[in-house]
Design a protein around this nucleic acid. Structure first.
Lengths: 240, 240
DNA sequence: GATAATAAATGTATAAAATACATTTATTAT
DNA sequence: ATAATAAATGTATTTTATACATTTATTATC
């Protein structure tokens, strides 16, 4: 690591102060029409019994993304889930335990019954975004910021789909958008707009869990989306 | 800082490894129809003579935003300029000098002649985004990421205006959008769309620097924008 | 003081997209 | 066979986007 070429610069590096760096994960799930966030009750002081997001310090030999993926895997047992850096929380006084910078990372999980159980065996709980209890440190702010980001991004990118199973119905997607944006959409217009994008692949299966008639299952055509995205297309299901 | 209540947690904090944290600033300016980024030639080893963004280590007693503002002030002599966190660069191998995490922050400056001179007295230079020379470390990637963010954000928020003087003309704004998105707009439709938002305040002054007839100067009505923004309005001047 | 030169400003017709709105359909349970 | 339930569908109207060419205000020059 310490090449003699870097001698001059080395003084600069040596003079600088090192700081604790952590990641905190804001993990969203869509549970039967309700948007939830994963949290756990701290079992040690300080703040024992308080709700907290899941986090970890960043080690010397890992990037912040790697640290966040490690945390996500430890708590959910899942890999390859949607995750994106939110922002840095670096107020000098944010953590009374020590000066510590935290990188917020938000993640989106499709909450099948299996996944829901997995997370709960790890001692975490899914809390509804509405009526969220108080969280430790600046974790409340992190959730608020992540929610805002999720809304802004879901407005113009198909990331909302990460909260649904790979195979989903149109009424499910509408319900997700209605919960996320706290709006009601006309079923005819929502469906028309969605199908006009020509990015849903209709399957021969129906989901009959919520009606006798059953609703057709669809998959999203990511290949087609990525091709068009590079040509300036943007995914949007409503205007105002 | 070290309250006995935090004793248990303290072990955890003490066990964690501290890391060098820096900020690097991607400062954009719009110079006579051309989008530029501020860089300087390193005067010390390593990478002496190579182009680099402007950065600094984050000190124990400042947040990352404060560090970035400090750097921006040192290099431009300006305060209150638009700045937003971009993302964290934390690859273990990104800096051969030492393990160091850097937070990219991008900023937008209105390049009056005064401001242009100010930055240049500090030894920095404005480089055109097109044909950008190689930059040290991952700074090239930072500029690419910042440009993408700028485009995505300027698409739906009026941040492009931060690159123009407070008083600007419609042809200036069109030229900015054309440069930023590498598109050409019809002057009639651009103006019509822009004015239909009802967010420009026309002044009684004209800017005659680029035509004999002169173009009317306008200011952006931020109060009106902020009010409507909270009601779901989004600023957008073109569709595809 | 007439003329040339220059970029700014303007209007209309057509096409596309968004919105508002009510009925029929497929299926299961009784 | 009937009732119950949510899924699926069509049309008319309004709004927004697009395509496209001429006139206007001003300065510099002859």
């Amino acid at each position: 690591m310490h090449n003699p070429l870097y001698q001059l610069a080395q003084n600069k590096y040596d003079a600088a102060q090192k700081i604790l760096v952590a990641v905190d994960c804001i993990i969203f799930g869509f549970d039967d029409g309700v948007l939830k966030v994963l949290a756990f009750k701290r079992k040690v002081e300080p703040f024992c019994g308080s709700w907290s997001l899941i986090g970890s310090f960043v080690a010397e030999n890992e990037s912040t993304d790697e640290a966040a993926k490690r945390v996500l895997f430890e708590i959910t047992g899942l890999k390859n889930i949607f995750m994106e850096e939110l922002k840095t929380y670096s107020s000098v006084t944010r953590d009374p335990g020590a000066r510590c910078i935290s990188i917020g990372q938000y993640a989106l999980i499709s909450l099948s019954k299996k996944n829901k159980k997995l997370t709960e065996t790890h001692g975490a709980e899914w809390l509804s975004i509405i009526d969220l209890p108080e969280l430790v440190l600046d974790h409340q702010q992190m959730v608020a910021d992540a929610l805002e980001r999720l809304r802004n991004k879901a407005r113009f990118y198909p990331i909302g789909l990460e909260l649904l199973p790979k195979k989903f119905t149109i009424p499910q997607l509408q319900s997700l958008y209605e919960e996320l944006f706290q709006l009601l959409f006309d079923t005819r217009n929502f469906r028309k707009k969605l199908l006009s994008l020509n990015m849903l692949i209709q399957l021969d299966e129906k989901d009959k869990t919520s009606s006798k008639k059953g609703a057709y299952l669809y998959e999203f055509d990511y290949d087609k989306y990525n091709t068009l995205k590079n040509k300036g297309f943007n995914f949007s299901l409503f205007k105002s």
